[in-house]
Simulated scan of single mutants.
Amino acid sequence: MTDLPPSEHLHDRIRTDIAHNARVWNYWLGGKDNYPVDREVGDRVTAFHPSIGAVARADRAFLGRAVTHLAREAGVRQFLDIGTGLPTADNTHEVAQRVAPDSRIVYVDNDPIVLTHARALLTGTAEGATEYVDADAHAPERILEAAARTLDFSRPVAVLMLGILNFVLDTDEARSIVRTLMDAVPSGSHLVLTHPTYDADLGGEANVAAMEFWNAHATPPITARSRAEFASFLDGLDLLDPGIVSCARWRAPEAAEVAQFGAVGRKP
């Protein structure tokens, strides 16, 4: 099963005249799947926030540590990765299936460039499953309906939302999305989150001008949130050690901090 539109329909949705987050993020990670407009905006944002490339790398490394822990120590075998972005090294299915070849992964994104790459991404172990869904994070019911074709929601699922809730500008709506997703999964499931912040203790003041520029020149619009707002997405979950920290330092205490929160919560 793949829940992807035909390639020609995806191509019609690709815009090369405005920067898009998935492609700019790819640029910051050193990838090649981006356009001149993405590189131009990426460089301008970097001028406002010189450590933004480090944020991108730290977020990716956090994914690897979190998924490895969940597959190895927590025994999770199902992963729902929402807003996965463009394929790069150590994608969720590669990390999980390296530990447990029978892991089942569903990727979710609605960017046409990401989706065109999904067909190459849709490879994994014969014992497991790796699928892709064309859906928006603002539509959790649609995500759950499509993911249920691959994942068994009577068994624990790790829901990954790395750098995606920052594109849901209304905090109440973002909480509702998380609640809908976590209400659909059983005890023993996990929520894996990262999110940018303005908080000065992590150097987040650099995000203010950078995000103002981004919202004027790129898509989709973005927001940062405080520690308290980030923590509210994890209400009702048991936080895994070390709790809410810079994503760079989640189980990597010697790493340099970046202005991006990271946390993993377990549904009791």
Score class of each variant (00 low, 15 high):
N207P: 02
N207Q: 15
N207A: 10
V208Y: 14
V208Q: 03
V208C: 08
V208P: 11
V208L: 09
A209H: 15
A209E: 12
A209S: 09
A209Q: 02
A210G: 04
A210F: 06
A210T: 03
A210W: 07
M211N: 14
M211A: 06
M211R: 13
E212D: 10
E212H: 01
E212A: 15
E212F: 10
E212T: 13
E212Y: 13
E212P: 01
F213M: 12
F213D: 01
F213T: 15
F213R: 00
F213E: 02
F213N: 05
W214A: 04
W214D: 08
W214C: 00
W214K: 07
W214R: 05
W214G: 00
A216T: 06
H217P: 09
H217L: 01
A218D: 11
A218T: 11
A218C: 03
A218E: 04
T219H: 15
P220T: 09
P220W: 02
P221N: 15
P221F: 06
P221M: 02
I222H: 07
T223M: 08
T223S: 08
T223C: 04
A224K: 02
A224M: 04
A224Q: 08
A224G: 03
A224T: 09
A224L: 07
R225W: 12
R225N: 12
R225I: 05
S226Y: 11
S226W: 08
R227A: 09
R227C: 10
R227L: 06
R227P: 06
R227Y: 15
R227I: 13
R227M: 10
R227K: 05
A228G: 02
A228N: 13
A228L: 06
A228T: 12
A228K: 12
E229R: 05
E229Y: 12
E229S: 08
F230E: 00
F230A: 00
F230W: 12
A231Q: 14
A231M: 10
A231L: 05
A231T: 10
S232K: 14
S232E: 05
S232M: 07
F233L: 12
F233G: 00
F233Y: 10
F233E: 00
L234A: 03
L234Y: 08
L234V: 14
D235L: 07
D235M: 01
D235I: 09
G236Y: 10
G236S: 08
G236V: 13
G236F: 10
G236R: 09
L237K: 03
D238S: 06
D238R: 07
D238I: 08
D238P: 08
D238L: 11
D238W: 14
L239R: 10
L239S: 04
L239N: 14
L239K: 04
L240T: 04
L240P: 01
D241S: 14
D241K: 15
D241N: 10
D241L: 13
D241Q: 07
D241P: 06
P242K: 05
P242Q: 03
P242R: 14
P242H: 03
G243Q: 13
G243Y: 01
G243F: 15
G243S: 11
I244V: 10
I244T: 06
I244E: 03
I244F: 04
I244S: 02
S246T: 04
S246I: 10
S246F: 02
S246K: 13
S246Y: 12
S246M: 03
